[in-house]
């Protein structure tokens, strides 16, 4: 495949707790091309954040551990790298934006120093030079009077501003891959749109690939090229975004899409997927979604489906889908 930047194959990250083993990420595979935006969608606890932490090799250990699979980034095997080699990758070639702009900046340092830190770390810049670059990055993220703001402490900034600072921090070394873990969840809607627009703009300028982790399908529709839907640590569907919205194949994806309130319909109650996410310690033997699936048959509860290609670029893991049999 041309332009392949990241390839995750059969990734397994398990958490070894006192009560048993939680397969937080259980055989996840996906790929990402250069300059592409891939959305990873799923409820809380579906393993999407752990997948991104696995790529960064930042899974909290113990109790977590990557127990299997392969992560190839720009032709290099990330799982084979030493901790020292990984430090050169983090923040330099792969960087991350977090969900909570309120807590993801260190309250005791000026924002400029925090942006400069990774430049000093990775680009061997002098502190002064790095601070000048930090001003440029702040200007790029659209913060007004950046030469003054660079001296602000985080508590002097609003949530949207801090998220811009986070973006400046993440992109200052011009990484090839940006992992954005729910970057807009904590922001209000107008700021959300601004931040998403900014990310796309900078993506075009720097030709960065983005993995966008979210549970917000509106965000997916707006910015992503392709989407991976996760449920209980597994990929249940993968498709180009337009096709996913037009013709969702997996019942879970359909459930998610039906849960979005629509402007053109007037309903008393919003649609909800029945039941709750199963306990990850005691997953059902068959399809993990079967207990909540309105279309589940008997064999769904016994046989686990496999992720199968059903059309070019479309993968689904469901026994009910034509060609999706185990």
């Amino acid at each position: 495949m041309d332009n392949l930047l990241l390839n995750v194959e059969d990734l397994k990250t398990h958490f070894f707790l006192d009560d048993g083993v939680v397969p937080a990420v259980d055989g996840v595979s996906f790929h990402l091309r250069k300059g592409e935006t891939l959305a990873v969608v799923g409820e809380s606890g579906s393993g999407k954040s752990i997948t991104s932490l696995s790529i960064m090799r930042l899974v909290p250990a113990p109790p977590g551990r990557i127990v299997g699979g392969r992560i190839t980034f720009a032709g290099e095997d990330l799982l084979a790298k030493s901790e020292k080699e990984m430090r050169d990758v983090r923040g330099n070639r792969i960087s991350m934006i977090f969900q909570e702009p309120m807590t993801s900046l260190n309250p005791v340092y000026r924002v400029g120093d925090q942006i400069a830190e990774s430049l000093v770390l990775h680009k061997r810049m002098k502190k002064k030079e790095a601070l000048e670059q930090a001003v440029e990055m702040l200007r790029l993220t659209g913060i007004p009077s950046p030469e003054k703001r660079v001296r602000d402490f985080p508590h002097q900034m609003s949530g949207g501003m801090r998220q811009r600072v986070m973006i400046a921090m993440a992109l200052c070394c011009q990484p090839e891959l940006l992992i954005a873990d729910e970057p807009t969840t904590a922001l209000d809607v107008t700021i959300q749109a601004q931040i998403l627009e900014l990310m796309q703009e900078l993506q075009r300028q720097m030709n960065t690939s983005i993995i966008l982790i979210t549970h917000d399908l509106a965000v997916v529709a707006e910015v992503a090229d392709r989407a991976v839907v996760m449920y209980c640590g597994k990929v249940v569907e993968e498709a180009p975004v337009a096709e996913l919205f037009e013709n969702p194949l997996h019942p879970y994806t359909r459930g998610l899409l039906n849960s979005i309130p629509r402007l053109d319909e007037n309903v008393d109650r919003l649609f909800m997927i029945d039941g709750v996410v199963p306990n990850m310690l005691r997953l059902p033997p068959g399809c993990a979604f079967a207990p909540r699936c309105p279309e589940a048959r008997e064999h769904c509860r016994e046989t686990a489906p496999r992720l199968t290609r059903v059309a070019p670029g479309r993968l689904v893991s469901c026994l009910l889908v034509e060609g999706g049999a185990a």
Partner: peptide, 10 residues
């Protein structure tokens, strides 16, 4: 999260 962020920049 800023500790996680510090880790994430290497």
């Amino acid at each position: 999260e800023y500790v996680q962020a510090a880790r994430a920049i290497g």
